[in-house]
Amino acid sequence: MFVSLGLDKIQEVFADAAIGLGRARIFAQFELLMRSYRKAWSEVIPVKFEYYRATDVSDAIDVLASARDAKVIAGGHSLLPLMKLRFASPMTLVDIGRISSLSYILDRGEYVAIGALTSLRDIETSPILKTSVPILSYAASFVGDPSVRHRATIGGSVVHGDAAGDLPSVMLAVGATVVLQGPDGKRSVSVDDFFLGFLETNINFDEVLLEIQVPKSDAGWARSEFNRRAQDWAIVGVAVLGGKSPRVSLINMASTPIRAFACEDALVAGGSIKEAADLVSSDLDPPEDLNATSAFRSHLANVLVRRALERSL
């Protein structure tokens, strides 16, 4: 659904090659193709789309259900970068950014309810969250920079489920619940069942994320990441919420934000912090890229989790 890199055009060129068109023509076509790509990349603007500004949630759902290949946009700080890189090329954007009733942080006793449109700056500075879910406001202060946090929303961060993102892993650590609304009404999904695959989450094309419910906790916590430069994405990150059955979640150790179940189980079974940390990637197959090999990621996760557990248990 997300990947639209114009592979069909490249295949066209190769198909022409296969049926024996002259080399000159093939090169001319390739040249044209590459020039159009270079132009597109140098301009860094998204492909064309239609834009619709929703007046309320049901209006947004109506358009999502009827328009072809529509996607929700709010702050746009996850979606627009994906669109500029042509990883996403929706034909319709449904802007929910003006539905101000979706921006709130409310104390509901057992949990704190956060509206999908709440900016990360509001989450970072919220007195309610600083008291009741401090790991979340602390982690929010590491996302991008102040100008990014003015615009980026918590709903966008969670609904994209980027394995490298700062906040999805925190949602796993605190055991949040996501509330979605579609044509047939509302449903609640535990974050444990929300992150399905690479940039793929448990939300239907005609659903809108309304709210994230974050349980309050006074357990110890820790959140840290390893990167080479201050502004970079984490190469590996970890979020831990202590308590009787500690929850340990990891950034960039799989194609989704993911919990370190082997490590959690070891702690519940009475294992030491070191024993648990040593098991952190035993049931994982960490990705390999230019920043780190799989083995280096496992090493980083081991060290970060051990330190995080020492601080939070």
């Binding site: 860094v44 834009y51 746009g76 970068p81 100008s147 615009r151």
Partner: peptide
């Protein structure tokens, strides 16, 4: 509020 105008439509 400050925003990065390259990431706003």
């Amino acid at each position: 509020k400050s925003v990065k105008s390259c990431t706003v439509l």
